[in-house]
Design a protein around this nucleic acid. Sequence first.
DNA 1: CCTTTTTTCAAGCAAGCGCTTGATCTAGAC
DNA 2: GTCTAGATCAAGCGCTTGCTTGAAAAAAGG
Lengths: 213, 213
Amino acid sequence: MLPGSKAVQAPRDADPGRRGRIIRESARLFRERGYERTSVRDIASATGLQSGSWVYYFRTKQEILAAVMEEGLQRSLVRIEAIGQQAGAPRARFEALVRTHLETLLAPGQDFIPVLLYDWRSLEAAARPRVVALQRRYEAVWDTVIAELRAAGEWTGATRIDRLLMFGALNWIAHWYRPGGGLDVRALAAEATRFFLRGGGRSLKRKPGRRTR
Amino acid sequence: MLPGSKAVQAPRDADPGRRGRIIRESARLFRERGYERTSVRDIASATGLQSGSWVYYFRTKQEILAAVMEEGLQRSLVRIEAIGQQAGAPRARFEALVRTHLETLLAPGQDFIPVLLYDWRSLEAAARPRVVALQRRYEAVWDTVIAELRAAGEWTGATRIDRLLMFGALNWIAHWYRPGGGLDVRALAAEATRFFLRGGGRSLKRKPGRRTR
DNA sequence: CCTTTTTTCAAGCAAGCGCTTGATCTAGAC
DNA sequence: GTCTAGATCAAGCGCTTGCTTGAAAAAAGG
């Protein structure tokens, strides 16, 4: 029988098991080269298996891709929805959302969300609705906080378009951000919040950082 | 002999010839399915050729991808640099840049830039420097106008980071924008300019538009 | 210790891939 | 017409791909 429905939930950051390791290594490879350029043989050898052994855990390569995306979204969602239920000033909660978003986007070893963003086209139509449903829950939290910001007079403009522009600015960071380049995620989150909300935050002094594309 | 170095430059929007048609159809297919999922047979049949005939115009499939990206950047660059040399209020010129950027990004039949953004990973390292050089020229124009905005007090914050955030917001639009959804490119450009610069512009009323991801 | 179940191996199939090849067609110059 | 160079055809080679397969190894249960 196929595994996956374990009776006991594994503790956080524990040994993820073969299946979890396949997901993690696949995420890394998908992010580096893209889904199509990653062969199942690449995945097998990165996990320390023989060419056909992954089939015991997943039926198809597509199923691995879907698992990567859902795993990443689930993890982010836990943190984002927790912030959504906290109390506090809207601006502070907004910045917390931004910081959490960037952490799950940029933290090393967390390649799930970049894969979701870059390889969406490679996910077959049948698997998309489940992922989209998770994204909807994700956006709902943001919309709530944005509504609070608007009530406080800190957000003007059309919510939907502005939110899409904002996600664009944030998600695009994965294209150019290089860890260890003199700009950590927390500072970047503050800078981005200032960019979206104007004022309140303080602009960064530039360090002699890395090149970007 | 290989064609491509014609003595006379073809007039705008004239018949692009076989080579040009291969580039155009490839751009369309690359955008829809991605570079890896597009086979040279797909390209051939979309252009009305037999499976191996494209080799007369390009040595490798990679060469087609590079041609698509450079073609698109060259076209955009002509328009962007023209705006860079115009006179006028900084804000108006900035909005013109935004509008032009969005037109080359979203206009139907202009799939070059989306391919550049989505399939960058698929471009082999050897071909990248030429494309990057064109991008540098592109960004230089923006930096000039942003410097003017800053002098006029309309742009605060770290130029480099803010410019990257801004490009993120703009480029991401290609993910969610649907032509004919009650929001034309000109209005979108105005909305985006307001988002970046705050104030001056007027927010859009929402029409009962399309879904987005 | 033997049986049963879970997990892994290692060879390989069928299909699709980028690209090659030698022949064929087309059109203008003489 | 004849020649020639440019342009296209159509078959297919060699390789990689996702996935299958039948068996072997390892773990678990009694």
